[in-house]
Structure formats: structure tokens, C-alpha cells
Nucleic acid binder design. Structure first.
Length: 232
DNA sequence: CCAGACGTTGTT
DNA sequence: GTCTGG
DNA sequence: CCAGACGTTGTT
DNA sequence: GTCTGG
């Protein structure tokens, strides 16, 4: 699955890379060097919205953890959506048909329960970093709006699938990615056939996972050292 | 009809 | 909002 | 995802 | 054990 990730590109780099026309208010505060993005954080996302008869591609901040429009209060549980069922589940299917997004990432983390020499007989949760092979992972996301007492909340979830054989030893789920040639269709709000949209998705091209410091396990920690390979 | 759920993951 | 279970 | 909190009454 | 916060 994907429950923690790194994204380091600044707004200008993302605008260039994804052909974004508009940088939304607040997005400069959430896009930049971040190595420990956690659920409930605001994350940079690429979306397309219709304004009049024109479609505008924007970089916007979204809260990670999708809150359905009918939710009584914001929740954190829907950080992932299974690709196998995303077009059917009431919480996701409208977003799958109308509100798809891209979540740019450098890579993401997985934890494995391991017994290590220095930890004695007890298992520890060892984090691994899974880096995009070419330095940019466009994760497939959905977003949704929720109206609370203090206004609108826009939130997002990452679509997941079964891990490929080479990654299964770390974890049995992984995020779906959107290949560059499919970005336009994936984002196009006129493409309302969700079942077709998910056929655009592919497993991400990742480097070999490697263990990193457990510092990443604390959400308050950040910095490039979090993705340094763990010394022996 | 109304009431209640609506999600994923990991772990045991 | 919409579907499912009762 | 992981880390950290989790609570009220009556009184040793 | 389970929920909340980040």
C-alpha cells in the first residue's frame, strides 16, 4: 500500500513537468522538499477542472485521506482505494468518474516487521524506501469535496493494486501510477467512464527497495537523510 | 418503507 | 448521495 | 502508514 | 485493544 511518501519538486518544477497552467492558493506551502508526507497532510496534486467551457489544469493542495461528501466529520481512514473495486464502492465511484488527479512523488515507504540483531528477540518495524526509477512517480489519485462548518475541504486518496512479484517481499500492495502518455486522459473530466479510466493505470517503475532509518516512523521528522540507505 | 453503512491495511 | 439489510 | 493516547471517581 | 493525530 502507500501510507507515507516523499515528494520534493517545487511548484515551478511541477508546473513545468505536468504542463500546469494555474498554481492554486496555498500550493507553494505544500510543494517542495518533503520526505515524510503522512495522512492528513496537505499534498500537491494535479487536477483539471471545467471553468465555463474551458478546462484548466491546476496544481492544488489536497488533504490526504479522502472524506466523502456525505461524511459527518472528516476521517483519516480512506488514504487508499483498491483499484479492483474503486468504480463500485460508494465512497469512491463518483470521484473515479469525475475527479481523478495525479499525486507527484519521489517514492514511498513501506514497513516490514523484522527481527534484527540489535533489537534482540523482538520484532521491529523496519521502514523501506521505494524510489521511482526515473525520479518521478505520478501516483493515481481521486479527490472529493466535503462541506464542513468552516467551509470546503478537498481531500484525496491513492489508488492501490497488488504488488508485483519483485516487490511482494516488502509488501503485498503498491500504488498505481499513471504513465506520462496517459496523463491527459486520466485528468480529463470529460472522460466519465471510470472503468475505462482505470485501464490507463500501470504498476510504477521502481528501483529496488532498501531499508532506511526508523526516523521516518515519527511523522514530525523530515529531511533528505530519511531516504539515505541504512548503514549495516 | 426506514436505518445504517459507506474503507483499507495489517495482524492474529 | 446512494445502496443494502431488515 | 506509525506513534501515542486512552479518564473518572473517589479518596491511602 | 482501539482510536486519534500527524
Amino acid at each position: 500500500m502507500c501510507g507515507r511518501y516523499a515528494a520534493t519538486a517545487n511548484p515551478e518544477e511541477l508546473a513545468e513537468e505536468f504542463d500546469v497552467e494555474v498554481l492554486a492558493d496555498g500550493v507553494s506551502e505544500v510543494a517542495g522538499a518533503r520526505f515524510n508526507i503522512a495522512p492528513t497532510d496537505l499534498v500537491p496534486a494535479v487536477v483539471e477542472r471545467e471553468r465555463g467551457d474551458a478546462v484548466t489544469r491546476s496544481l492544488v493542495p489536497l488533504r490526504w485521506g479522502l472524506v466523502p461528501s456525505w461524511a459527518k466529520a472528516p476521517t483519516t481512514t480512506m488514504i487508499n482505494a483498491r483499484v479492483e473495486t474503486v468504480t463500485e464502492k460508494p465512497a469512491f465511484r463518483k470521484a473515479a468518474a469525475a475527479r481523478r488527479c495525479l499525486l507527484p512523488a519521489l517514492g514511498y515507504y513501506e514497513w516490514r516487521s523484522e527481527v534484527r540483531p540489535e533489537s534482540g528477540p523482538k520484532a521491529i518495524k523496519q521502514p523501506y524506501f521505494l524510489a521511482a526509477r526515473d525520479g518521478l512517480l505520478a501516483m493515481a489519485g481521486l479527490y472529493e469535496f466535503w462541506r464542513g462548518p468552516d467551509g470546503w475541504l478537498a481531500s484525496t486518496t491513492i489508488i492501490t493494486t497488488t504488488a508485483t512479484d519483485d516487490l511482494g517481499w516488502v509488501h503485498d500492495r503498491m500504488p498505481m501510477s499513471v504513465p506520462r502518455e496517459a496523463w491527459d486522459d486520466w485528468l480529463d473530466p470529460a472522460l466519465t467512464d471510470a472503468a475505462h479510466a482505470v485501464t490507463l493505470l500501470r504498476p510504477p517503475a521502481l528501483a529496488t527497495p532498501y531499508p532506511v532509518s526508523r526516523a521516518v516512523s515519527r511523522v514530525g521528522n523530515d529531511g533528505p537523510q530519511l531516504i539515505d540507505p541504512l548503514p549495516e
